[in-house]
Design a protein around this nucleic acid. Structure first.
Lengths: 175, 175
DNA sequence: AAGTTCATGTAACCAGTTACATGATTGT
DNA sequence: ACAATCATGTAACTGGTTACATGAACTT
């Protein structure tokens, strides 16, 4: 994950590790955080793997600027075009960088993700039906209020994502 | 985290590791998953720490039943009563077990969490104002659509949580 | 002069997952 | 007989975080 955060942020241009962390905090910081303990080793790894070039500045502060190589750029765009998956909110990170993606692939991936979302919503709805049926037969059903509420959270969560996705698929404006 | 999942699930009564995993999958499985590679070592640790007792069944299948000790029960309830925090969705796990918590503490913790949520919503709203102001001055603002959309996701997300929390604070029924 | 921000880095730790290994029991 | 499910466990790995260590430059 951290590797793609770095590559993606560097699509904007040269940056130092410090700058990358700042940028992440100010943009996707709500959902993704990075620590120097993972960031600097990642940058080193990416340079060794030919994804980035490292440029020392003589601006005294020992600052290093990283830049994408063509390989790095290709690797990032390859990752970006892969289907959106729910794992660890990776889809949110991908969509954050979606301005870089080919519009046709973008549309396709967003619609597929919406399709899956709808399936999930239907499934939770079905489970909810069963559960509330079972619950109705219990005399102490009040004891399960909070357990059930978490299922309800799931439903609301997916419905929120659905509405949001539909909005961005249509590229509607934000009020 | 896994420790409290185990303790919480065992509040219902004796269970095997296998049972715990099943129960987790069928309840909070949408948001929390556990693997045997973390579950069995956790159970071992909890027994060693005096939180659980282990009982071998001679029912051939080598099944072991785990049961909360008074220490384990106390430790769980202590954790459960601590303030709700956004970290790694731990709050969702706590609320799942909230039927076990003293109603006064429960109400207090839920309301504090709602208060924080409102602060977050206000803050994102403010950031959004600034960003859309800056964006309006750009000629290529279309290039930032998806980056901005992730900020909007954040807002929707918190608003969803807010509505959900308000519902459970009032203990309103689910339709 | 003191405090904050800029800037890089490492070592120890942590909370898990994945893949593997094993074997009994139940259902078809 | 074969597959699925029940049942436990470990070793290697992964993807990080925390705490520490260092020091220059800017701000007040």
């Amino acid at each position: 994950m951290i590797d793609y955060i770095c590559l993606g942020m560097l699509m904007q241009g040269k940056m130092s590790g410090y700058d990358i962390k700042k940028t992440v905090e100010q943009s996707v910081g709500l959902f993704f955080t990075i620590s120097y303990g993972s960031l600097y080793p990642a940058l080193k790894r990416l340079v060794e793997g030919g994804m980035l070039t490292e440029e020392e500045t003589n601006n005294s502060k020992n600052k290093k600027l990283y830049q994408l190589t063509e390989t790095g750029r290709g690797s990032f765009l390859q990752w970006l075009g892969e289907p959106l998956q729910s794992n660890r909110r990776e889809y949110l990170l991908k969509i954050f960088f979606y301005d870089c993606l080919d519009p046709a692939i973008r549309k396709n991936n967003l619609e597929n993700f919406l399709f899956e979302l709808n399936r999930n919503i239907a499934q939770i709805g079905a489970v909810q039906q069963i559960v509330s049926g079972q619950l109705a037969q219990l005399e102490n059903k009040d004891d399960y209020y909070y357990r059930v509420s978490v299922m309800h959270y799931g439903l609301r969560f997916y419905q929120m994502e659905k509405a949001w996705l539909e909005q961005i698929i249509e590229k509607r404006d934000y009020e």
